[in-house]
């Protein structure tokens, strides 16, 4: 047997080879697409610019091409942001996140608490149920809501009074007459997003709270803490980084969700198109520059999220070990 370095038995070359493969993979599948999105957004006009510059024979461009393309690129951003439909898409995306994140944080904590602190029949079933939105395809998640709230869905089978001609009025018809829309309107988009982002907080907190045990809380109780005091003074400080991590993931998915939202959207421009949906629309209309501008904006939000997530992960690690 050849002498292995240190205490490992792997051959010497294995580590650098694995690292190289991992790095190459990251570069090709993650870094390259990211760079492409930004460079496309900034330089779609570069070709036009060069063509124009070369068209004027002998005339030299005033700016070196790189700067010129950057200049053009920012003007694409400005144009994109001044487009009312782009702004509506950004607003809708932020509104959806603003509703979904607090709600799912609240319910996530509630669920994690129930699962980590209490023993009850069907607990394992409940825990697997939490994961359901991860297990099923987002398209199906969207379709579920159409089947419940759509014109031919369940709501249209629930009687809700009688019509003028004596026939039964269904709940859907009652709502429809009052213009209360769920699918193909903002509520449907929010519901679909709520559904797909539901597991993040609970999934993050359950193992954390189980690992932590009940000792601190029981100590606080014997010292006479009230329920609220217990939560805010003892539990919350213990789970805060894990909670924040779950919130960040919820937010990232809420902003980026495409499939489920696409099904319930109805594609009404400026009204039910979120940023991811609108990017696809722009791309389909050959408006590549604007599409990439909005795409890079979305990516930027994701990158910021990623950095915040990394910091929190670090703090979480510190809390667990320290």
């Amino acid at each position: 047997m050849s002498a292995a370095p240190g205490h490992t038995l792997e051959p010497r070359w294995l580590k650098p080879v694995l690292i190289t493969i991992a790095l190459l993979f990251l570069a090709v599948f993650i870094l390259l697409p990211l760079v492409t999105i930004f460079s496309q957004a900034l330089s779609v006009n570069l070709q036009d610019y060069l063509a124009a510059a070369l068209g004027y024979e002998g005339a030299t461009p005033e700016l070196p091409p790189l700067f010129a393309s950057l200049g053009e690129g920012t003007s694409v951003y400005r144009a994109a942001l001044s487009d009312a439909e782009v702004r509506a898409a950004i607003r809708l995306t932020l509104l959806t996140a603003l509703i979904c994140v607090p709600l799912n944080t609240f319910f996530g904590v509630l669920l994690a608490w129930a699962v980590a602190r209490f023993e009850f029949r069907g607990k394992n079933f409940l825990v697997s149920l939490i994961e359901l939105p991860f297990a099923i395809s987002p398209v199906i998640a969207g379709l579920i809501f159409i089947l419940i709230f759509g014109a031919s869905g369940w709501l249209n089978m629930i009687p809700f009074g009688t019509q003028a001609d004596g026939s039964t009025l269904t709940l859907y018809q009652w709502m429809d007459a009052r213009n209360l829309k769920v699918v193909f309107a903002v509520p449907g988009i929010v519901l679909a997003t709520l559904f797909v982002t539901f597991p993040f907080v609970a999934r993050e907190l359950i193992p954390l709270m189980q690992e932590m045990g009940k000792d601190d809380e029981e100590a606080a109780l014997t010292l006479g803490a009230s329920g609220w005091q217990l939560f805010f003074r003892v539990t919350l400080p213990n789970i805060k980084w894990g909670l924040l991590y779950g919130v960040i993931l919820t937010n990232a998915r809420a902003i980026g969700e495409f499939g489920a939202v696409a099904v319930v959207s109805g594609n009404v421009r400026g009204e039910t198109t979120t940023m991811p949906l609108y990017i696809e629309i722009l791309y389909g209309e050959y408006q590549f520059a604007t599409a990439f501008a909005v795409a890079s904006l979305l990516t930027l939000i994701a990158l910021v999220t990623l950095v915040v997530k990394a910091v929190i992960e670090y703090l979480l690690q510190k809390q667990r070990t320290g």
């Binding site: 159409i146 709230f149 759509g150 014109a151 031919s152 869905g153 859907y172 429809d176 829309k181 699918v183 193909f184 109805g266 594609n267 009404v268």
Partner: peptide, 8 residues
């Protein structure tokens, strides 16, 4: 399909 399902 969307109109059938209730898109107004």
């Amino acid at each position: 399909r969307a109109v059938i399902d209730g898109l107004d």
